[in-house]
Design a protein around this nucleic acid. Structure first.
Lengths: 204, 204
DNA sequence: GCAACTTGCATCATTGATGTTGCAAGTCGT
DNA sequence: ACGACTTGCAACATCAATGATGCAAGTTGC
């Protein structure tokens, strides 16, 4: 009927066969440049991205048919690294506090420099959305374990805590110039658990 | 010699004389729509903004000569409301805890203009930058008072705490559908002061 | 070394966003 | 009620970003 009136463009990146070594390097350079450029200005042009990658604009178009395809590929690429970083911390098996610290450190290592790609989490791409939901679930599972182990208070709102946790990691990532990953992770976990106030339970 | 080769456009908004009532309403509608629209998609078109404001695109162009002028005006407008909200909470004279709570509530109320307009804080406009710096100073002054009064721990990193505070407010604002301003302010202050952990000082 | 592949460059077409203007209809202030 | 102002609409001009392509020169893999 009215379905698919838009002129379909070829996928190009997606079901691609293995690339030659130089093409692979170019691809990575473009994705990294896209992250750098788009995190500074989400409306940056393909021209600017190409320039940042040190390639011609036409080359970018040869690898990614459309701007959207590039952004999608970037989101997927970064999201996979993100998920891998979380998994590597054994968030479901290590003791809650250890898992929390390790996860934080790992994510900070990856997130350092993937601010834009992560903000595209709500991408239409179902695969990206799925992975993000998976990580979110893992995170909340970890928090529930922490609560049951007495690390978190029994009355905490898990989704809210997760959002605060994400926000703290984001803030910490902004300070990567000043402190190393370990110190940043400590800062995040410490702030999340203790807050900034003195231990006087009857304040409000 | 080569100075000012660009074709100068008339300022329009800036040194304007008082507007008629309907024009004033339109102006406000446009700025609010711009905030709403641009916070969702920073690359949104003038068309989309006009549509969100319920006016014709040409009307937007009559009020703001260029897209840049609109964004600048938006940044300044939102920043002034932001600063006014903070001032209204008497952050320098009220008792620290009261000031903290009141400031949070006021800012949350005004937070119509944060997502986008506040991210434009690093605007080239020196006036906007000045006001932001002023608010930042007020905020850190309040935190120092809180620390001296024993509300915050003596060893807290004030700039870090301020950033965490901003981030918490941002997160809370995302939930304004579920809770009212008072509850949100309580949540923010509570999280900032106590964190999410159990009161066991010897954890790490 | 040779074939296949990739890249840069120049060039072109297309599209959508931006910004302007004239005019008719509507609104505001007094 | 009247003049001044504002708005929507239609039409137009401009321009920058996107995307495609042919060709020559340079790489890669075997």
């Amino acid at each position: 009927m009215l379905s698919s009136m838009k002129t379909e463009r070829r996928p190009k990146a997606g079901g691609g066969r293995p690339l030659r070594a130089d093409a692979e390097r170019t691809m990575t350079a473009i994705l990294e440049a896209a992250e750098r450029t788009l995190s500074r200005d989400p409306a940056a042009t393909m021209e600017q991205i190409a320039e940042a990658a040190g390639v011609a604009r036409t080359t970018v178009h040869r690898r990614f048919a459309t701007r959207e395809a590039l952004v999608d590929a970037l989101a997927e690429w970064a999201t996979r690294r993100f998920a891998a970083a979380v998994d590597a911390a054994r968030p479901d098996t290590a003791p809650p506090l250890v898992a929390l610290y390790q996860t934080t450190a790992n994510v900070l290592d990856v997130k350092v420099g993937w601010g834009f790609a992560m903000s595209q989490a709500s991408s239409v791409d179902p695969e990206v959305a799925r992975i993000h939901a998976e990580v979110r679930e893992t995170c909340e599972r970890l928090f529930r374990r922490a609560r049951d182990a007495g690390v978190l208070r029994a009355d905490v709102d898990i989704p809210w805590t997760r959002r605060v946790y994400y926000a703290l990691i984001h803030q910490a990532a902004q300070r990567r110039e000043e402190l190393d990953t370990g110190a940043l992770a400590t800062l995040v976990v410490d702030t999340l658990l203790r807050g900034a106030g003195t231990p006087q339970p009857d304040r409000l």
